[in-house]
Design a protein around this nucleic acid. Structure first.
Lengths: 175, 175
DNA sequence: CGAGGTAATTAACCTAGGTTAAAACGCTGA
DNA sequence: TCAGCGTTTTAACCTAGGTTAATTACCTCG
Protein backbone atom coordinates (compact mmCIF):
# COMPACT_ATOMS: atom_id res chain seq x y z
CA UNK A 1 0.00 0.00 0.00
CA UNK A 2 1.13 3.53 -0.75
CA UNK A 3 2.02 5.53 2.36
CA UNK A 4 -0.31 8.33 1.34
CA UNK A 5 -3.14 5.87 1.05
CA UNK A 6 -2.25 4.40 4.43
CA UNK A 7 -2.28 7.82 6.03
CA UNK A 8 -5.63 8.68 4.47
CA UNK A 9 -7.13 5.49 5.81
CA UNK A 10 -5.54 5.41 9.25
CA UNK A 11 -4.53 8.98 10.03
CA UNK A 12 -6.28 11.42 12.28
CA UNK A 13 -6.03 15.19 11.87
CA UNK A 14 -4.45 17.09 14.72
CA UNK A 15 -4.25 20.86 15.00
CA UNK A 16 -2.20 22.86 17.45
CA UNK A 17 -1.88 26.54 18.25
CA UNK A 18 1.54 28.06 18.59
CA UNK A 19 2.82 27.43 22.12
CA UNK A 20 1.05 24.09 22.53
CA UNK A 21 2.86 20.81 23.09
CA UNK A 22 2.32 17.78 20.90
CA UNK A 23 3.85 15.65 23.64
CA UNK A 24 6.02 16.21 26.67
CA UNK A 25 9.17 14.59 27.97
CA UNK A 26 8.20 11.90 30.48
CA UNK A 27 4.78 11.17 29.00
CA UNK A 28 3.94 8.00 27.11
CA UNK A 29 3.48 8.34 23.38
CA UNK A 30 2.62 5.82 20.68
CA UNK A 31 2.17 7.85 17.56
CA UNK A 32 4.02 9.10 14.54
CA UNK A 33 3.09 12.43 12.98
CA UNK A 34 3.26 13.86 9.49
CA UNK A 35 3.66 17.62 9.58
CA UNK A 36 1.43 19.36 7.05
CA UNK A 37 1.84 22.86 8.34
CA UNK A 38 3.75 24.65 11.06
CA UNK A 39 7.08 24.57 12.82
CA UNK A 40 8.10 22.59 15.89
CA UNK A 41 11.03 22.44 18.21
CA UNK A 42 12.02 19.17 19.83
CA UNK A 43 13.84 19.87 23.06
CA UNK A 44 15.38 18.20 26.07
CA UNK A 45 14.83 19.40 29.59
CA UNK A 46 18.00 18.61 31.51
CA UNK A 47 18.23 17.75 35.18
CA UNK A 48 19.61 21.21 35.98
CA UNK A 49 16.53 22.78 34.38
CA UNK A 50 18.32 23.85 31.22
CA UNK A 51 16.59 23.48 27.88
CA UNK A 52 18.50 22.24 24.83
CA UNK A 53 17.05 21.99 21.34
CA UNK A 54 17.35 18.62 19.65
CA UNK A 55 15.90 19.66 16.30
CA UNK A 56 13.43 21.76 14.39
CA UNK A 57 10.67 20.08 12.43
CA UNK A 58 8.71 21.70 9.61
CA UNK A 59 6.26 20.98 6.79
CA UNK A 60 6.93 17.71 5.04
CA UNK A 61 8.81 16.22 7.96
CA UNK A 62 7.81 13.14 9.87
CA UNK A 63 8.21 13.23 13.61
CA UNK A 64 8.10 10.65 16.36
CA UNK A 65 9.89 9.87 19.58
CA UNK A 66 11.68 6.73 18.41
CA UNK A 67 12.73 5.23 21.71
CA UNK A 68 9.38 6.11 23.25
CA UNK A 69 7.19 4.42 20.67
CA UNK A 70 9.59 1.61 19.91
CA UNK A 71 10.70 0.68 23.40
CA UNK A 72 7.46 1.78 25.07
CA UNK A 73 9.35 4.11 27.35
CA UNK A 74 8.46 7.66 28.40
CA UNK A 75 9.26 10.36 25.87
CA UNK A 76 12.88 11.43 25.94
CA UNK A 77 12.07 14.94 24.72
CA UNK A 78 9.21 17.42 24.34
CA UNK A 79 7.72 18.68 21.12
CA UNK A 80 6.41 22.23 21.03
CA UNK A 81 4.61 24.05 18.22
CA UNK A 82 6.33 27.36 17.46
CA UNK A 83 3.70 28.20 14.85
CA UNK A 84 0.08 27.15 14.36
CA UNK A 85 0.33 23.59 13.12
CA UNK A 86 -1.59 20.91 11.27
CA UNK A 87 -0.50 17.29 11.45
CA UNK A 88 -1.75 13.83 10.75
CA UNK A 89 -1.38 11.35 13.57
CA UNK A 90 -0.82 7.67 12.93
CA UNK A 91 -0.47 4.86 15.46
CA UNK A 92 3.13 3.70 15.32
CA UNK A 93 2.63 0.04 16.21
CA UNK A 94 -0.04 -0.38 13.64
CA UNK A 95 2.01 1.33 10.94
CA UNK A 96 5.04 -0.71 11.89
CA UNK A 97 3.07 -3.96 11.69
CA UNK A 98 1.81 -3.04 8.26
CA UNK A 99 5.34 -2.10 7.28
CA UNK A 100 6.55 -5.57 8.15
CA UNK A 101 4.09 -7.04 5.67
CA UNK A 102 3.98 -4.51 2.89
CA UNK A 103 6.90 -3.83 0.58
CA UNK A 104 5.74 -0.42 -0.48
CA UNK A 105 5.29 0.83 3.08
CA UNK A 106 8.56 -0.79 3.93
CA UNK A 107 10.35 1.18 1.21
CA UNK A 108 8.94 4.38 2.59
CA UNK A 109 10.14 3.55 6.08
CA UNK A 110 13.58 2.60 4.84
CA UNK A 111 13.94 5.86 2.98
CA UNK A 112 12.79 7.87 6.01
CA UNK A 113 15.14 6.07 8.36
CA UNK A 114 18.12 6.46 6.09
CA UNK A 115 17.39 10.17 5.81
CA UNK A 116 17.11 10.38 9.60
CA UNK A 117 20.33 8.49 10.15
CA UNK A 118 22.18 10.78 7.74
CA UNK A 119 20.82 13.86 9.48
CA UNK A 120 21.92 12.61 12.88
CA UNK A 121 25.34 11.64 11.55
CA UNK A 122 25.85 15.14 10.23
CA UNK A 123 24.89 16.56 13.62
CA UNK A 124 27.24 14.18 15.37
CA UNK A 125 30.01 15.34 13.06
CA UNK A 126 29.29 18.98 13.81
CA UNK A 127 29.38 18.53 17.58
CA UNK A 128 32.48 16.39 17.42
CA UNK A 129 34.56 18.41 14.97
CA UNK A 130 33.33 21.99 14.75
CA UNK A 131 33.35 24.88 17.21
CA UNK A 132 30.23 26.93 17.92
CA UNK A 133 31.12 29.66 15.43
CA UNK A 134 31.52 27.20 12.59
CA UNK A 135 28.35 25.34 13.55
CA UNK A 136 26.48 28.63 13.34
CA UNK A 137 27.92 29.40 9.91
CA UNK A 138 26.95 25.95 8.66
CA UNK A 139 23.43 26.45 9.90
CA UNK A 140 23.18 29.77 8.09
CA UNK A 141 24.40 28.15 4.90
CA UNK A 142 22.27 25.05 4.99
CA UNK A 143 19.02 26.34 6.53
CA UNK A 144 18.88 30.10 5.96
CA UNK A 145 15.09 29.89 5.76
CA UNK A 146 14.81 28.41 9.26
CA UNK A 147 16.67 31.28 10.87
CA UNK A 148 13.87 33.71 10.10
CA UNK A 149 11.20 31.60 11.74
CA UNK A 150 13.12 30.92 14.93
CA UNK A 151 14.16 33.01 17.88
CA UNK A 152 17.84 33.53 18.49
CA UNK A 153 17.46 31.90 21.88
CA UNK A 154 16.32 28.69 20.27
CA UNK A 155 19.05 28.80 17.66
CA UNK A 156 21.63 29.07 20.43
CA UNK A 157 20.18 26.16 22.35
CA UNK A 158 20.16 24.16 19.13
CA UNK A 159 23.85 24.90 18.59
CA UNK A 160 24.59 23.80 22.14
CA UNK A 161 25.55 27.25 23.41
CA UNK A 162 23.83 30.03 25.37
CA UNK A 163 22.00 32.96 23.78
CA UNK A 164 24.70 35.22 25.21
CA UNK A 165 27.41 33.27 23.41
CA UNK A 166 25.49 33.36 20.13
CA UNK A 167 25.08 37.11 20.35
CA UNK A 168 28.82 37.40 20.87
CA UNK A 169 29.52 35.20 17.85
CA UNK A 170 27.16 37.19 15.64
CA UNK A 171 28.89 40.43 16.54
CA UNK A 172 32.41 39.07 16.31
CA UNK A 173 33.20 39.90 19.91
CA UNK A 174 35.40 37.07 21.10
CA UNK A 175 38.05 38.83 23.15
CA UNK B 1 15.31 -14.30 1.94
CA UNK B 2 16.97 -14.51 5.31
CA UNK B 3 19.81 -12.03 5.76
CA UNK B 4 22.20 -14.80 6.79
CA UNK B 5 21.38 -16.67 3.63
CA UNK B 6 21.89 -13.51 1.60
CA UNK B 7 25.29 -12.94 3.17
CA UNK B 8 26.36 -16.52 2.56
CA UNK B 9 25.41 -16.21 -1.09
CA UNK B 10 26.66 -12.72 -1.82
CA UNK B 11 29.27 -11.97 0.82
CA UNK B 12 33.02 -12.04 0.46
CA UNK B 13 35.38 -12.68 3.36
CA UNK B 14 37.75 -9.87 4.27
CA UNK B 15 40.53 -10.07 6.83
CA UNK B 16 42.53 -7.22 8.24
CA UNK B 17 45.49 -6.96 10.56
CA UNK B 18 45.40 -4.50 13.41
CA UNK B 19 46.44 -1.10 12.12
CA UNK B 20 45.00 -1.58 8.63
CA UNK B 21 42.24 0.56 7.18
CA UNK B 22 39.05 -0.89 5.79
CA UNK B 23 38.47 2.38 3.97
CA UNK B 24 39.73 5.93 4.22
CA UNK B 25 38.04 9.30 4.32
CA UNK B 26 37.92 10.71 0.80
CA UNK B 27 37.93 7.36 -0.99
CA UNK B 28 34.91 5.92 -2.77
CA UNK B 29 33.22 2.98 -1.13
CA UNK B 30 30.23 0.89 -2.10
CA UNK B 31 30.07 -1.87 0.45
CA UNK B 32 28.51 -2.78 3.73
CA UNK B 33 30.39 -4.99 6.19
CA UNK B 34 29.36 -7.46 8.84
CA UNK B 35 31.93 -7.66 11.61
CA UNK B 36 32.63 -11.24 12.66
CA UNK B 37 35.71 -10.56 14.70
CA UNK B 38 37.79 -7.61 15.78
CA UNK B 39 37.38 -4.01 16.82
CA UNK B 40 37.30 -0.89 14.66
CA UNK B 41 37.34 2.81 15.18
CA UNK B 42 35.53 5.11 12.78
CA UNK B 43 37.14 8.53 12.84
CA UNK B 44 37.04 11.93 11.22
CA UNK B 45 40.14 13.76 10.13
CA UNK B 46 39.40 17.46 10.53
CA UNK B 47 40.80 20.28 8.41
CA UNK B 48 43.17 21.28 11.23
CA UNK B 49 44.60 17.77 11.25
CA UNK B 50 42.85 16.73 14.43
CA UNK B 51 41.38 13.26 14.69
CA UNK B 52 37.98 12.70 16.33
CA UNK B 53 36.39 9.33 16.91
CA UNK B 54 32.88 8.86 15.55
CA UNK B 55 32.31 5.39 16.95
CA UNK B 56 33.72 2.00 17.83
CA UNK B 57 32.51 -1.07 15.98
CA UNK B 58 32.84 -4.62 17.25
CA UNK B 59 31.71 -8.20 16.64
CA UNK B 60 28.09 -8.45 15.58
CA UNK B 61 27.94 -4.88 14.32
CA UNK B 62 27.23 -3.84 10.78
CA UNK B 63 29.26 -1.01 9.36
CA UNK B 64 29.01 1.17 6.30
CA UNK B 65 29.58 4.76 5.31
CA UNK B 66 25.95 5.68 4.75
CA UNK B 67 26.33 8.92 2.84
CA UNK B 68 29.17 7.45 0.81
CA UNK B 69 27.38 4.36 -0.43
CA UNK B 70 23.97 5.95 -0.61
CA UNK B 71 24.84 9.28 -2.19
CA UNK B 72 27.88 7.94 -4.06
CA UNK B 73 30.10 10.52 -2.44
CA UNK B 74 33.60 10.09 -1.00
CA UNK B 75 33.75 8.55 2.45
CA UNK B 76 33.13 11.01 5.23
CA UNK B 77 35.27 9.10 7.72
CA UNK B 78 37.96 6.44 7.93
CA UNK B 79 37.65 2.98 9.40
CA UNK B 80 40.65 1.47 11.11
CA UNK B 81 41.08 -1.99 12.60
CA UNK B 82 42.32 -1.76 16.19
CA UNK B 83 42.50 -5.55 16.45
CA UNK B 84 42.94 -8.31 13.86
CA UNK B 85 39.57 -8.48 12.14
CA UNK B 86 37.37 -10.74 10.06
CA UNK B 87 34.44 -9.31 8.14
CA UNK B 88 32.06 -10.18 5.38
CA UNK B 89 31.75 -7.64 2.62
CA UNK B 90 28.51 -7.14 0.72
CA UNK B 91 27.79 -4.76 -2.13
CA UNK B 92 25.45 -2.11 -0.80
CA UNK B 93 23.52 -1.35 -3.99
CA UNK B 94 22.83 -4.95 -4.62
CA UNK B 95 21.69 -5.59 -1.04
CA UNK B 96 19.56 -2.47 -1.15
CA UNK B 97 17.91 -3.57 -4.39
CA UNK B 98 17.11 -6.94 -2.92
CA UNK B 99 15.82 -5.22 0.19
CA UNK B 100 13.34 -3.26 -1.87
CA UNK B 101 11.87 -6.51 -3.14
CA UNK B 102 12.14 -8.85 -0.21
CA UNK B 103 10.14 -8.43 2.97
CA UNK B 104 12.45 -10.46 5.14
CA UNK B 105 15.54 -8.54 4.09
CA UNK B 106 13.57 -5.37 4.46
CA UNK B 107 12.71 -6.22 8.06
CA UNK B 108 16.36 -6.75 8.81
CA UNK B 109 17.28 -3.38 7.31
CA UNK B 110 14.50 -1.63 9.20
CA UNK B 111 15.64 -3.11 12.49
CA UNK B 112 19.26 -2.15 11.82
CA UNK B 113 18.37 1.39 10.85
CA UNK B 114 16.16 1.91 13.87
CA UNK B 115 18.95 0.67 16.10
CA UNK B 116 21.36 3.02 14.37
CA UNK B 117 19.03 5.99 14.66
CA UNK B 118 18.55 5.33 18.38
CA UNK B 119 22.28 5.10 18.93
CA UNK B 120 22.89 8.39 17.14
CA UNK B 121 20.06 10.07 19.05
CA UNK B 122 21.61 9.05 22.33
CA UNK B 123 24.94 10.44 21.23
CA UNK B 124 23.29 13.69 20.13
CA UNK B 125 21.71 13.91 23.56
CA UNK B 126 25.01 13.38 25.29
CA UNK B 127 26.81 16.08 23.34
CA UNK B 128 23.95 18.50 23.73
CA UNK B 129 23.15 18.02 27.40
CA UNK B 130 26.07 16.46 29.24
CA UNK B 131 29.55 17.72 30.12
CA UNK B 132 32.66 15.68 29.41
CA UNK B 133 32.84 14.20 32.92
CA UNK B 134 29.29 12.91 32.74
CA UNK B 135 29.78 11.57 29.22
CA UNK B 136 32.77 9.60 30.49
CA UNK B 137 30.78 8.17 33.39
CA UNK B 138 27.98 7.15 31.05
CA UNK B 139 30.47 5.41 28.79
CA UNK B 140 31.92 3.49 31.75
CA UNK B 141 28.45 2.43 32.78
CA UNK B 142 27.13 1.42 29.40
CA UNK B 143 30.25 -0.03 27.73
CA UNK B 144 32.65 -1.08 30.47
CA UNK B 145 33.92 -3.89 28.23
CA UNK B 146 34.98 -1.47 25.48
CA UNK B 147 37.21 0.53 27.79
CA UNK B 148 39.62 -2.35 28.20
CA UNK B 149 40.13 -2.82 24.48
CA UNK B 150 40.69 0.84 23.66
CA UNK B 151 43.44 3.30 24.33
CA UNK B 152 42.67 6.27 26.53
CA UNK B 153 43.60 8.56 23.67
CA UNK B 154 40.83 7.11 21.55
CA UNK B 155 38.33 7.25 24.37
CA UNK B 156 39.09 10.94 24.79
CA UNK B 157 38.68 11.66 21.11
CA UNK B 158 35.42 9.73 21.17
CA UNK B 159 34.17 11.87 24.05
CA UNK B 160 35.10 15.00 22.12
CA UNK B 161 37.92 16.06 24.45
CA UNK B 162 41.72 15.76 24.48
CA UNK B 163 43.64 12.94 26.15
CA UNK B 164 44.98 15.51 28.61
CA UNK B 165 41.47 16.49 29.65
CA UNK B 166 40.41 12.87 30.07
CA UNK B 167 43.38 12.19 32.31
CA UNK B 168 42.38 15.17 34.44
CA UNK B 169 38.81 13.91 34.69
CA UNK B 170 39.91 10.41 35.69
CA UNK B 171 42.05 11.77 38.51
CA UNK B 172 39.53 14.32 39.70
CA UNK B 173 41.86 17.23 39.07
CA UNK B 174 39.62 20.02 37.88
CA UNK B 175 41.01 23.05 39.65
C1' DC C 1 69.20 -6.45 29.53
C1' DG C 2 68.66 -1.63 27.38
C1' DA C 3 66.97 1.49 23.40
C1' DG C 4 63.23 3.46 21.28
C1' DG C 5 58.38 4.30 20.85
C1' DT C 6 53.78 5.01 22.32
C1' DA C 7 50.48 6.05 26.01
C1' DA C 8 49.43 8.43 30.21
C1' DT C 9 50.26 11.94 33.59
C1' DT C 10 51.33 16.49 35.33
C1' DA C 11 51.97 21.36 35.32
C1' DA C 12 51.54 26.18 33.59
C1' DC C 13 49.20 28.88 30.94
C1' DC C 14 45.34 30.18 27.53
C1' DT C 15 40.66 30.56 25.40
C1' DA C 16 35.90 29.51 24.19
C1' DG C 17 32.04 29.72 26.12
C1' DG C 18 29.15 29.95 30.69
C1' DT C 19 26.97 32.97 34.34
C1' DT C 20 24.85 36.89 36.13
C1' DA C 21 22.97 41.02 35.75
C1' DA C 22 21.92 45.20 33.70
C1' DA C 23 20.59 47.78 29.74
C1' DA C 24 18.37 48.32 25.15
C1' DC C 25 15.11 46.89 21.91
C1' DG C 26 11.33 45.45 20.15
C1' DC C 27 6.55 43.87 20.47
C1' DT C 28 1.53 43.59 21.58
C1' DG C 29 -2.50 44.96 23.76
C1' DA C 30 -5.31 48.29 26.88
C1' DT D 1 0.22 56.46 23.81
C1' DC D 2 2.49 53.73 27.13
C1' DA D 3 2.88 49.53 30.27
C1' DG D 4 4.54 45.07 30.28
C1' DC D 5 7.01 41.27 28.59
C1' DG D 6 10.06 38.63 25.95
C1' DT D 7 14.35 38.92 23.09
C1' DT D 8 18.81 40.63 22.24
C1' DT D 9 22.91 42.96 23.50
C1' DT D 10 26.71 44.28 26.54
C1' DA D 11 29.85 43.98 30.23
C1' DA D 12 32.48 41.74 34.08
C1' DC D 13 33.83 37.85 35.78
C1' DC D 14 34.37 32.57 36.01
C1' DT D 15 35.33 27.69 34.56
C1' DA D 16 35.80 23.61 31.65
C1' DG D 17 38.62 22.15 28.68
C1' DG D 18 42.55 23.18 25.13
C1' DT D 19 47.69 23.72 24.30
C1' DT D 20 52.37 22.87 24.96
C1' DA D 21 55.83 20.65 26.85
C1' DA D 22 58.21 17.99 30.12
C1' DT D 23 58.05 13.61 32.87
C1' DT D 24 56.92 9.08 33.70
C1' DA D 25 55.15 4.53 32.75
C1' DC D 26 54.77 0.69 29.64
C1' DC D 27 55.95 -2.19 25.69
C1' DT D 28 58.23 -4.52 22.35
C1' DC D 29 62.09 -5.69 19.83
C1' DG D 30 67.13 -6.44 19.16
Amino acid sequence: MDIKQYVIEHGRQVNLAAGQHLFRQGEMEDALYFVKQGLFKAYYLCQDGKELVKSFIAEGDVITNLSAVFEREPCTFSLLALEPAALVKVDFDSLYQHTLDDLELSRFMLASLIKLAQKKERREYEFLCLDATTRYQQLMQHQPDLLHRITQNDIARYLGITPVALSRIKHGRKA
